[in-house]
Structures are given as structure tokens and as C-alpha cells.
């Protein structure tokens, strides 16, 4: 053990690498500090707020109201919300209703595959607490049991206006939070 230590101390490459990593670590801390204070944070958060692309995953019947909200009258795209098929390019999961035990595993996998930062809106009573089906043998009582949730939308199903409100609340949350602490 002692011989190893002496060789390491004498090795100029290891010493240099150690010093470099220390320096890079300090630099990244500095970058984080600079980004989080001042106008860069506002720019980054502004970009994140208005391009919330939800991944195309429907868990249950609230998808009907999600569809209505994306449709012609309510048009979620004016908030920058564009449902998209590819999960690697999306930032948001809207959990639309009841989560069964079979679906919960897949939902968690989709969440894990998404790039940071990622946000979750739990839509409907079922995604909050099981709702109408709380005593069923095959469902998970609430989305918070397996993914962190940013905004809850109560209702069975919530009206499209409620979903719009949730999007605005999420945007407000993003606006106030630090760049490196999101998702």
C-alpha cells in the first residue's frame, strides 16, 4: 500500500491529472455559479419554458381531454406544448389518468430514458391518488409512487382549461428555479 502511494506521488502524470480534475471541478462550479446568477439563467429558463414537448404516452382515459386541449379550440401549442412521438426529444410527461401496475413499469422506463431536464404533470384524480379506482387490484394509487411529480391537475377528467393552467404553473416553476436543479 505504501509503495503504491510513493509511486503515485512521484508519477508526474497522476499529479497533473489530479490537479487538472481539481481545476476542472472548480471551473465547473464557477460556470454553474455564473449561469445561475444573471441573464444566462433567464435565457435558458425562457427556452425551457416555451418548448415543453410532452412525450406521446397515454395511460388511460384522460387522454380524451388531453386531445381536446391539443385540438383546435384550446390549442396547447400556443404555450409551446407540442405532443411528440420521440421520447429522447421530449421534456414532459403528462400522465393521463389511471396508472396500472403493468403500465407503471413502462412509464418509469420512459422517464428514465428521457434527457434532463424532464418534468411530470399528473393529470386526473387517478394519477393523484387512484381516484375512482382506488380500491382496484390492478392500479397504482398515484404517480408519485414511482416518478417525481411537478404539477398535479385534479378532476375526473380535468377540463382542458385546467390542463392549460397546469402548463402555466409548470412554466412559472421553471422560471423561478435554478438551471442545474431542474428535472
Amino acid at each position: 500500500m505504501s509503495t503504491q502511494r510513493t509511486t503515485q506521488e512521484e508519477d508526474p502524470v497522476a499529479t497533473l491529472a489530479e490537479g487538472l480534475s481539481l481545476w476542472v471541478g472548480k471551473l465547473s462550479d464557477l460556470v454553474k455559479k455564473v449561469v445561475d446568477t444573471g441573464p444566462i439563467r433567464n435565457v435558458v429558463n425562457w427556452a425551457r419554458m416555451y418548448s415543453l414537448w410532452p412525450v406521446n404516452i397515454t395511460t388511460a382515459c384522460c387522454s380524451a381531454e388531453f386531445g381536446a386541449a391539443s385540438g383546435a379550440r384550446h390549442d396547447l401549442e400556443r404555450f409551446g406544448v407540442l405532443p411528440i412521438g420521440s421520447l429522447r426529444q421530449s421534456d414532459l410527461i403528462v400522465i393521463e389518468g389511471t396508472i396500472t401496475k403493468k403500465m407503471a413499469k413502462r412509464l418509469r422506463m420512459i422517464y428514465d430514458q428521457m434527457a434532463l431536464p424532464r418534468y411530470v404533470i399528473a393529470m386526473g384524480d387517478c394519477a393523484m391518488s387512484g381516484g375512482l379506482f382506488h380500491d382496484s387490484y390492478s392500479i397504482v394509487n398515484g404517480a408519485h409512487e414511482f416518478v417525481p411529480v411537478d404539477v398535479y391537475v385534479p378532476g375526473c377528467p380535468p377540463r382542458p382549461e385546467a390542463l392549460e393552467q397546469a402548463i402555466i404553473m409548470l412554466q412559472e416553476k421553471i422560471r423561478r428555479s435554478k438551471v442545474y436543479e431542474q428535472g
Binding site: 395511460t59 396500472t100 379506482f133 380500491d135 392500479i139
Partner: peptide, 14 residues
């Protein structure tokens, strides 16, 4: 299928 099976037939009985 079965991703949205919520056991409604059983819930009705309760």
C-alpha cells in the same frame, strides 16, 4: 392488451 385493465367488473360488485 391489458395496459389499462382497472378491474372494473370487480369494482362494480363493490
Amino acid at each position: 392488451p391489458g395496459y389499462v385493465h382497472r378491474g372494473i367488473e370487480k369494482i362494480i360488485e363493490l
